[in-house]
Design a protein around this nucleic acid. Structure first.
Length: 348
DNA sequence: TACATACAC
DNA sequence: TATGGTGTATGTA
């Protein structure tokens, strides 16, 4: 019924779980996916529990918002001064001298399965179970299937694709998780290769890593583009070598983000996914422009709860707005929290 | 210390 | 039929 547009209880709340865009899902009929997820979820215990949690966070947000609205002009002014001092000093200390790369494997588990059995590339499949998928291949993503989606819902999305799409009904294939040992093994090999670019590489989960390539670039006299291309081809070549499959045409691909710090590099690696790279130049202007309209949810560390809080309490949906609302944010959140958020707004 | 919440993969 | 398992960080009693 058309009444659930407001907040708190309808499918509009629930949609945030699976409709935020993932790579390869640009042409997905998001409304259709949202409705399907809602229809298949609405009577479950899980759904009720989710709504309860949303309601609790809404109440917390309301209390916080009341506190913000009760702030006096004097309090806001003094908070603004404190925030400004902090922001200036952070901005002064901005380090643009180093180059970081975030390397993110494309549909990692699915990619390995395709190398094992190339026929899988042309049919929609996911790794995991009817209860939960850990990865979907790009064929499945066309139907709106994505990681962390319950398999039974994914299956239904493939069986009954959106009438507004030109997708043919398909049977989603499930590949069980029995090869997890191999996934870890492949991951270790990739990390080893990446250490050639930075011996102090930071792993982030099984299929991601942060590299500081400053020294590597200097030593080999390379541009950011050259480094990103080299990393991508090296990863692809090594995976094709040690995964020995029947038709050794291509290995696993990855995407890279290049930026003056890890936080920005991570965001950049998602932009040209799959099998691409994006470079954010090391200039203050470029960075401030980049973050000004960047949705806060893209930032690592801002999840469902923080997104709702910033939106409902301060009206902030983009990183740049964090700076505009610095007075209220500084006056109402803990020091560690508001300082972290100002760093996000500055693209630090 | 122990438990709870948020977040990420 | 059916919505994970694990690790990290931070906050709170």
């Amino acid at each position: 019924d058309g009444k659930d547009g407001v907040q708190g209880h309808g499918k509009c709340d629930y949609e945030t779980v699976f409709t935020n865009a993932k790579a390869g899902m640009d042409n997905v009929d998001k409304d259709y996916v949202r409705d399907m997820v809602y229809e298949m979820s609405k009577n479950s215990k899980f759904f009720v529990n989710e709504q309860q949690k949303n309601q609790q966070s809404d109440e917390r947000n309301k209390r916080l918002k009341a506190r913000v609205e009760a702030l006096t002009q004097a309090e806001l002014n003094s908070a603004c001064q404190i925030a400004d001092r902090f922001i200036d000093s952070e901005d002064d200390g901005r380090d643009l001298s180093r180059t970081f790369v975030h390397v993110d494997m494309d549909a990692f588990f699915a990619g390995i399965e395709i190398l094992k059995n190339p026929d899988l590339a042309n049919v929609p499949f996911g790794t995991g179970s009817l209860a939960m998928l850990s990865t979907a291949n790009y064929e499945a993503r066309k139907y709106g299937v994505r990681s962390a989606m319950p398999g039974f819902i994914a299956k239904e999305l493939c069986r009954k694709p959106s009438p507004r799409s030109n997708l043919k009904p398909a049977e989603l294939l499930f590949v069980g998780n029995y090869r997890h040992g191999e996934y870890s093994h492949v991951s270790k090999q990739i990390m080893k290769v990446l250490e050639g670019f930075d011996p102090h590489i930071k792993r982030a989960g099984i299929d991601e890593a942060y590299l500081d390539v400053t020294d590597y670039m200097k030593k080999h006299d390379m541009t950011p583009t050259q480094v990103a291309d080299k990393i991508r081809s090296t990863v692809e070549n090594t995976t094709v070598t040690f995964l020995q499959h029947p038709t050794p045409a291509a290995g696993l691909t990855c995407s890279c983000g290049v930026a003056p710090n890890r936080r920005l590099a991570k965001i950049c690696s998602d932009i040209r996914k799959p099998n691409g790279h994006y470079i954010l130049p090391p200039s203050r202007d470029a960075i401030l422009h980049f973050v000004s309209t960047l949705p806060i949810r893209k930032v690592n560390g801002i999840g469902r709860v923080s997104e709702r809080m910033l939106q409902h309490v301060y009206g902030v949906t983009q990183c740049g707005q964090l700076l505009e609302h610095r007075a209220a944010i500084c006056a109402s959140l803990r020091p560690l929290t508001w300082k972290w958020l100002m760093g996000v707004g500055l693209g630090l």
